[in-house]
């Protein structure tokens, strides 16, 4: 977009808008989460709804990082999405903010590991792994995962990894491919 390596008010507006767009599109997907929970509860896998949906919830972070290509943008994209969700229709309130910080740091780490130099599949792969590990660690406390059996934990971890890879990896790559073809992503 522009050349200097500092966030300007335009970038901040764009980051917040991206977060709100994702929030607005996902507003209709709450019923999927609730339906998944209802279906999974009788077989003792209710928390899996959380893991299966995780990919959707973390998409803003990697996309923002990929688009703006500056340190901190993946974090801000995800965090501002959480701020928006907190005010407009998010059911989890302030806990959303804490999750937003965890997810933001997790997404950002993937980009940090590449030194903000590479923007390709490796970056999204790294971001997928850091997001899965960090959000899972947070859910050990927040959603009481530490009270589960190891076998269940492994199933949940794999479900989350797949979900984050599909949405935070493949899906984000598809969107950025389109943006790339429209020449709105300029290498810094």
């Amino acid at each position: 977009m522009h050349q200097d390596k500092k966030l300007h008010v335009r970038d901040i507006i764009l980051l917040a808008l991206i977060g709100i767009i994702f929030g607005a599109i996902f507003m209709g997907t709450d019923f999927i989460y609730n339906a998944l929970t209802v279906v999974l509860t009788p077989i003792g896998l209710a928390p899996m709804a959380n893991d299966l949906m995780m990919g959707l919830w973390i998409m803003a972070g990697p996309l923002a990082g990929f688009m703006l290509r500056l340190p901190g943008t993946a974090f801000l994209g995800e965090f501002l999405a959480a701020v928006g969700e907190m005010f407009f229709g998010g059911q989890w309130g302030a806990a959303t903010l804490i999750s937003g910080v965890v997810q933001g740091v997790a997404a950002e780490l993937g980009f940090t590991l590449t030194g903000y130099k590479y923007y390709n599949w490796v970056t999204l792969g790294l971001s997928t792994i850091t997001s899965t590990v960090l959000t899972f660690a947070w859910d050990m406390f927040k959603n009481g995962y530490s009270a589960f059996h190891l076998q269940l934990l492994i199933i949940l971890f794999i479900a989350r990894l797949i979900s984050i890879f599909i949405f935070g990896g493949v899906f984000v790559k598809l969107i950025t491919n389109l943006l790339n073809r429209a020449h709105v992503l300029v290498a810094r």
């Binding site: 991206i18 767009i21 209709g28 997907t29 996309l63 899906f171 598809l174 429209a182």
Partner: peptide, 22 residues
């Protein structure tokens, strides 16, 4: 919500808006 094109188009609008607002 699973169409990348929807997000792509919305993001293009967001880029324009962010520039206009700034």
């Amino acid at each position: 919500w699973w169409s990348p094109r929807l997000y792509f188009k919305a993001i293009l609008v967001a880029i324009t808006w962010s520039e206009n607002l700034a």
